[in-house]
C-alpha cells in the first residue's frame, strides 16, 4: 500500500554530465558505486543515507556520458558536493558536472540532457614534438601521450 502523500519522500533530480579519457568506459554500476562511496566519505553514513543519491538513468559512450541522479528534497547541495568529489570510476579519472536540477525525471532529461555525441574519430595529429594518434570528439582532442593522454583542442594542433 502506498504511503500517505505527506509521508512520501520528495525528490529532486540532478542532471549530470560526465567525461573521461578515451580509454575508459565506466559502467552504470561502477558510477553508482563511486557516487555512494564519495557520499559516504564526505557526508558520513547518516548524511549519505539522507541524500540517497540513486543513479536512475545512465548512458555513456565515446568518452562522454550523462546520468540522472535522484536526491532527497532539501539535500541538493550535499548531493552536489558528493558528486563533485567523485574523481574516478574503476580507477579511471572522471569529470563530473551537475548541469541542472528538476522536480521530475522527465523534465530533467528534456531540459538538460539528451545530447548524443557521435562516435569519436581516430586521427593522427601534430601535437608538441611530433605526430601522434588522437581521439577527436568535436572540440575535444585527446592525444596519445605514452601510456596516457593529453587533453587538447584544435587550436593546440599544428597544421599537417
Amino acid at each position: 500500500m502506498p504511503l500517505p502523500k505527506h509521508l512520501r519522500p520528495r525528490w529532486r533530480y540532478l542532471a549530470v554530465r560526465i567525461e573521461t579519457w578515451p580509454d575508459a568506459d565506466p559502467s552504470r554500476k561502477g558510477f553508482q558505486r563511486a557516487v555512494w562511496e564519495s557520499a559516504r566519505a564526505l557526508l558520513g553514513d547518516p548524511g549519505s543515507a539522507d541524500a540517497v543519491l540513486e543513479v536512475l538513468r545512465y548512458r555513456f559512450g565515446g568518452g562522454t556520458g550523462e546520468a540522472v541522479v535522484r536526491v532527497r528534497h532539501g539535500e541538493v547541495s550535499r548531493g552536489r558536493a558528493a558528486l563533485a568529489c567523485v574523481g574516478s570510476v574503476d580507477g579511471h579519472p572522471i569529470g563530473v558536472r551537475v548541469v541542472g536540477v528538476s522536480g521530475t525525471i522527465r523534465a530533467c532529461e528534456e531540459k538538460y540532457l539528451g545530447e548524443t555525441p557521435g562516435d569519436p574519430d581516430h586521427e593522427d595529429v601534430v601535437f608538441g614534438d611530433g605526430t601522434r594518434p588522437a581521439v577527436v570528439r568535436g572540440a575535444a582532442v585527446d592525444v596519445r601521450d605514452g601510456h596516457a593522454f593529453a587533453g587538447a583542442t584544435p587550436i593546440d594542433l599544428e597544421d599537417q
Partner: peptide, 18 residues
C-alpha cells in the same frame, strides 16, 4: 591539473559548505 578535475563554481560552493 586536467580538464577532468575542473569542478564548477556551484560544485565548489557545495563542497565548501559540506
Amino acid at each position: 591539473d586536467s580538464h577532468l578535475r575542473i569542478r564548477s563554481p556551484r560544485e565548489l560552493v557545495a563542497v565548501g559548505e559540506a
